[in-house]
Structure formats: structure tokens, C-alpha cells
């Protein structure tokens, strides 16, 4: 086993790891925020919003992430210059990067899965708890904010942990649009050094460590409200 390349490639590796973490955090946080709207739209009583949210979730859950990424990178990417005002804006340099499209694709995809899960857990909150909230005089928006959503999120926590781990393992796909994430770094090292296994082993260890960390974070969140088992 030869790990002597770690030192010369440390910057590439570190930047790759940082990028992987960044993509994970951005797509999970923004994706979750979008998922809340998708879930509420699906259980709400506005038929237009319901169908729109349902279609969104079906499309993004029903197509491979790779295809979504390429559709967004090549498709959306080639239309952006024609949107008036965008080219001069401060966002423009960002929008020419593969990283931007990778983050968008990962976020939209994650939102679809979470939106579906959250829809289910919203429906799993016992009706009586919501009635109790109405009965003390809460208006529907407050019931949603104070009782319904927090309860639904807690019911979904064990599932969310698994979803975030899956999302982590989906991130290497961004290398296909030239983003140098951790996997991209390993790829480059393999090409340069002609080592087959070592770079992959290091990267695998990193993913495992991150998975462990995610598990710990969610364990903490779950323990925040003690449950009787």
C-alpha cells in the first residue's frame, strides 16, 4: 500500500472533501425547505398546488439523477444567457460553473424525495393533536407552524437520516459535470499516480466517516424529545 501521494495532493483532497460537504449541506438544507412546501401543497386543499407538487415529486423521483443533472447542466445552462438581466448580475459568474448546476440538481432531487416522505408524516400526525390546537384558538397557519410540521418532522427523523446518507452517496455524480469533489480528486490521483486502490480506499473511508457523523447528528436530534420505547 502506498499512501505517499496524500501529502502532495493534500490540497486537491481537502478541496474535494470540502466541496462534497458543501454540496451535501446545501442540497439537504435547501431541498428540505422546498420539501416543506411540496408536502404542504400535497396535503392542502388547493387542487392546482396539489397537482403541481405531486407532478414535481413524481418527475424527480421517477428519473435518474444523472439525467436530471445533465438536463439542468446542458439544458437550463444554455438558456440562462437569454434571461434578460441575468448576464450582468452578480450571480452570473456563479452560474457558469458546473458546481452551480450540480447544487441545483441535487437540491431539486432531494426536495422531491423529502417532499414525499414529509407528505406521509404530515398525514401520520394524529388528528386529535391538531384538533386540540384548533380548540385552543390557533389559526390554521399557527397549527401548521407550532404543531403539525414539528410533529411531522419528528415522526420522519429516522427516515431523514437514511435519506441524507443516500444523498451523500449520490454526490459523486457531480464529477460528470466537471465538479472536482472528493471523488473527482480521487479520480485525478488515480490517473496521475496509476495507483488503483489506494485513492479509492481513502475516499471510501471519508464517506464512511461522514456517514457516521450524520448518524450521530440525527441521533442527537431524535434524543432531543425523549420517546418511550
Amino acid at each position: 500500500m502506498d499512501f505517499s501521494w496524500i501529502i502532495p495532493y493534500r490540497e486537491l483532497l481537502l478541496n474535494g472533501a470540502l466541496l462534497t460537504c458543501m454540496l451535501l449541506v446545501i442540497s439537504v438544507v435547501l431541498g428540505f425547505a422546498i420539501a416543506i412546501f411540496l408536502a404542504i401543497a400535497q396535503v392542502g386543499n388547493n387542487p392546482v398546488l396539489r397537482v403541481a407538487a405531486k407532478s414535481y415529486c413524481t418527475f424527480f423521483r421517477g428519473t435518474p439523477l444523472l439525467i436530471q443533472l445533465w438536463l439542468i447542466y446542458y439544458g437550463l445552462g444554455s438558456y440562462l444567457p437569454y434571461i434578460p438581466g441575468l448576464k450582468g448580475s452578480f450571480l452570473w459568474p456563479l452560474m457558469r460553473e458546473g458546481l452551480f448546476f450540480a447544487a441545483v440538481a441535487l437540491t431539486l432531487n432531494f426536495a422531491a424525495y423529502q417532499g414525499e416522505i414529509l407528505r406521509g408524516t404530515l398525514l401520520a400526525v394524529p388528528k386529535g393533536e391538531l384538533e386540540a390546537a384548533l380548540a385552543v384558538g390557533m389559526r390554521p397557519s399557527m397549527v401548521l407552524r407550532r404543531i403539525w410540521l414539528p410533529r411531522a418532522i419528528r415522526i420522519g427523523l429516522p427516515t431523514f437520516a437514511g435519506e441524507v446518507i443516500l444523498q451523500l452517496k449520490a454526490t459523486p455524480i457531480v464529477f460528470s459535470v466537471t465538479v472536482m469533489d472528493l471523488y473527482g480528486a480521487a479520480y485525478k490521483i488515480r490517473q496521475d499516480t496509476l495507483l488503483v486502490y489506494e485513492p479509492l480506499i481513502l475516499v471510501a473511508a471519508f464517506y464512511v466517516a461522514l456517514t457516521f457523523l450524520i448518524t450521530q447528528v440525527f441521533q442527537r436530534l431524535e434524543n432531543a424529545v425523549p420517546a418511550r420505547r
Binding site: 394524529p126 393533536e129 386540540a132 380548540a135 385552543v136 410533529r151
Partner: peptide
């Protein structure tokens, strides 16, 4: 708004308690 105001003046106790578990 009137219904919400009136409800907050009526304390309801349910058969199944319906406390908020979180």
C-alpha cells in the same frame, strides 16, 4: 377570527387527551 377567539374562551378536554407529544 371570531371562531378562533371564541375557541380560546372554551377549554376542551378530549377523551384521548391529545397532548402535544413534542
Amino acid at each position: 377570527r371570531q371562531i378562533e377567539r371564541l375557541r380560546s374562551g372554551l377549554g376542551m378536554v378530549f377523551q384521548s387527551f391529545n397532548l402535544w407529544p413534542h
